[in-house]
Design a binder for these strands. Structure first.
Lengths: 205, 205
DNA sequence: CTCTTCTGATACTTTAAAGTCTCAAAAGAG
DNA sequence: CTCTTTTGAGACTTTAAAGTATCAGAAGAG
């Protein structure tokens, strides 16, 4: 008769791919509209509603897995950067580069929509906030950001610029490759023309 | 027997005040969480759920009135500025000053949550977008913003900075009076120190 | 104080989305 | 091709929020 009763993901099976597709599209849809119905998500992922429920026993669990997923992606993207022990300025630059394409995950984890109950999740959320705050502190300490700017403002602006970039790209209004440069530039020197002798901050053109 | 069957708002009656309280709190709550339940809104406004339904026959109508309200407020705040025919730079400054305190209305009207169906509303929404876009265009034309920055990015950043300011203030993280300055500064010159040389400009302490 | 208006509480119905179940058929593996 | 796994469709139940109705009592006007 049949084998295992447990659904075991076998390396890179069909199940694995289906699940990933659902997670990806769910992230995409929910980042844009946090209260999208499971119907919309299933439709976007091109699977039946039943399949969604086969892999996630409830909306809550889907959300949970998305958060864990988002955390994993962000961790994987940012840890190598931190380990390079660059200057705050260079860390910022590399952070922006990797975070803009992860805008959905990033904003998703940063948004408060989720943290209600679910103790384990609150930690990931808190970690994320702490990371942002730490970077903000270093930027101030190393004089990359002016001393008189409140920490809360630095973190909030960074978060929002990254999310704005992601959404603007995903709606086709600006080019993917322009986005990180625009974020860095907006954040550090603003959008006014660099009238004086200011040199273009390195790297971004 | 009793008088009018129609509920007629008599200048500044109790009804008037109740309704305004509900509209204000609804705006506040919904700006933070677009899918808050009517229960939460009623609670925040300190009225019974029944009263909410007395004044707004459905959630949809509440939303509708909120949009109209938001549009009125924004119109009232910005029209005088436009009529002054200032430079783009000064217009921007005055816009930011009046829009930050109206952050909830502003972002509410700008968010896409609503525009579904309801033809009349779509117009207000479109007008709002056009106003933002026009300002962005003028900023570019008058060289307040660098020529190579995409219009979509200017408008998006402006929208988001204003909303971020409002929410940061309303959560108590930055002072009300600091907010417009931070927005203008972030937008035009960014958060980096304004000094010419990279090393500490202020010498020792 | 008296009479009317307005409100809050509560119990009720309706609706839309969440969640369950079944089955036939598509997709893969051998 | 055959046999097994996995899926999509759709019918069904449950749940939570939307929406309705009623009524007793608070608030306000004269």
């Amino acid at each position: 008769m049949s084998r295992e009763l447990v659904i075991l993901n076998k390396e890179n099976s069909r199940q694995q791919r289906t699940k990933e597709k659902m997670l990806n599209l769910a992230m995409y849809i929910l980042a844009k509209n946090p209260n999208a119905s499971l119907n919309e998500i299933a439709e976007a992922a091109e699977v039946g509603r039943a399949t969604l429920f086969r892999y996630f026993k409830s909306r809550k669990q889907l959300l949970h897995e998305l958060v864990v997923e988002a955390d994993k992606k962000l961790e994987k993207a940012t840890r190598p950067i931190i380990e390079k022990k660059l200057s705050a300025r260079d860390t910022l630059e590399e952070f922006i580069r990797v975070l803009v394409p992860l805008g959905a995950s990033f904003h998703f984890l940063n948004s408060e929509q989720i943290n209600s109950e679910d103790s384990g999740i609150a930690d990931l959320y808190r970690n994320q906030l702490i990371r942002l705050r730490e970077l903000s502190e270093r930027l101030k300490a190393e004089n990359v950001v002016a001393a008189d700017v409140p920490l809360a403002w630095i973190a909030a602006v960074l978060d929002n610029l990254i999310y704005t970039a992601w959404i603007t790209v995903s709606e086709g209004d600006i080019a993917t490759n322009d986005a990180p440069g625009l974020v860095l530039r907006s954040f550090l020197t603003g959008l006014a023309p660099q009238s004086m002798n200011k040199t273009n901050p390195r790297g971004f053109s």
